[in-house]
Write a protein that binds this DNA or RNA. Structure first.
Lengths: 195, 195
DNA sequence: CGCGACGTTGATTTGCCTCAACGATTGTGG
DNA sequence: CCACAATCGTTGAGGCAAATCAACGTCGCG
């Protein structure tokens, strides 16, 4: 049980599980080690797992018709990461999910989670409320980005997630913020000389 | 019970409720009529309701620091609409939610829904699965927009929701698509003369 | 009927992209 | 453990999609 401390603490912020319920949950968790640059989801393959990051960092991205990469999510410890659309609809993925570092994740299959949510009311509540929050925050973020310039987006990310900006390559950050690495480099130069 | 047909059918696509559960649900529903141009959420006020559109049309939008409007969501029959971030966090709204037509909605308070989800497992499952789907589709949509030009975004919306495009003022559509009304007008002209 | 909001059209501007060239890092095979 | 290749980040010149600004017809509503 000790090995599952991080995810159990995360859940405890939303609901409380009995010991029996915790045991049912950890029974469906598979712990996997992923090497840097390895993919856990790829276009064409159905995303079968909800992946919880125990240690390490990931990004999800897709490649558009012009061959350009768009980073959708950057995930570090205690985040879930997957091609969520593929997972929910159980259809082939359109995203790559790639390890940015050597990592450890917890994996739970769609079928196991659905089964457990039908059986354990508290777990249904955990996924309901945590997804509602994730959705609300995602909308909020999309919103604030609408009216920001590229420079303001960079500054906001830097302020909110300084550890992420430090940890991942700049081209990934740029792609996440929806700008080219060249342009972000110019922003960084301007900020460095101004301040 | 007949009056609640639309929302009960919507729920039935996800879970089945016993008669007793349906009665508990409709007991917390308040039916409200909203006049065109009336607001159901406003910045500064906590969004207390999940609003289900029975008849009519709404949009949610926010006004940025430069005074520009950004339409976040357009909702017609059988959609939920609110400042979801405000609703989930129970903090003051940043969005306006405005009726685009004379409308009828079902309103359920945050407290009532939370209480009922803790009591009725099937309702917890309904909100869990429907929110997961909404989240997944929202991400998918944001994704496809990343690599589209303004013209492609307009065409995609026109194809997917022709009834919305017909029903709603063009400046609202333009604001939803993230472009100026002037530029959308030019796109429309070009499309009309080309085809 | 008149006024204000809406949609259109044209001229000009701009934020960010593209392309290209070049140092700095990182990683890898000998 | 070093050498060389590959990738990453930086810098500059030029270009383009969409914004801004402004002017004008038109339609719906009070």
């Amino acid at each position: 049980m000790e090995a599952y401390k991080s995810i159990l603490e995360n859940i405890a912020r939303y609901v409380s599980l009995s010991l029996a319920e915790k045991e049912k949950l950890v029974a469906i968790i598979r712990t996997t080690k992923i090497k840097k640059r390895q993919f856990i989801d790829q276009p064409g393959y159905v995303c079968n797992y909800r992946n919880y990051v125990v240690q390490g960092a990931f990004r999800s991205y897709y490649i558009d018709g012009d061959g350009k990469e768009h980073t959708v999510q950057i995930a570090i410890e205690d985040w879930f990461v997957s091609d969520f659309y593929s997972y929910i609809t159980q259809t082939p993925a359109t995203l790559y999910v790639e390890a940015l570092e050597d990592s450890t994740i917890f994996q739970m299959t769609y079928q196991d989670i659905e089964g457990l949510c039908k059986e354990v009311h508290a777990l249904s509540e955990y996924f309901r409320t945590s997804t509602e929050r994730a959705f609300a925050f995602s909308r909020k973020r999309a919103l604030s980005n609408l009216s920001l310039t590229a420079e303001e987006k960079y500054l906001e990310l830097l302020q909110r997630y300084p550890n992420i900006v430090r940890r991942v390559p700049q081209k990934v950050i740029a792609s996440y913020l929806g700008m080219t690495p060249e342009f972000m480099s110019k922003i960084r130069k301007k900020l460095a000389t101004t301040s």
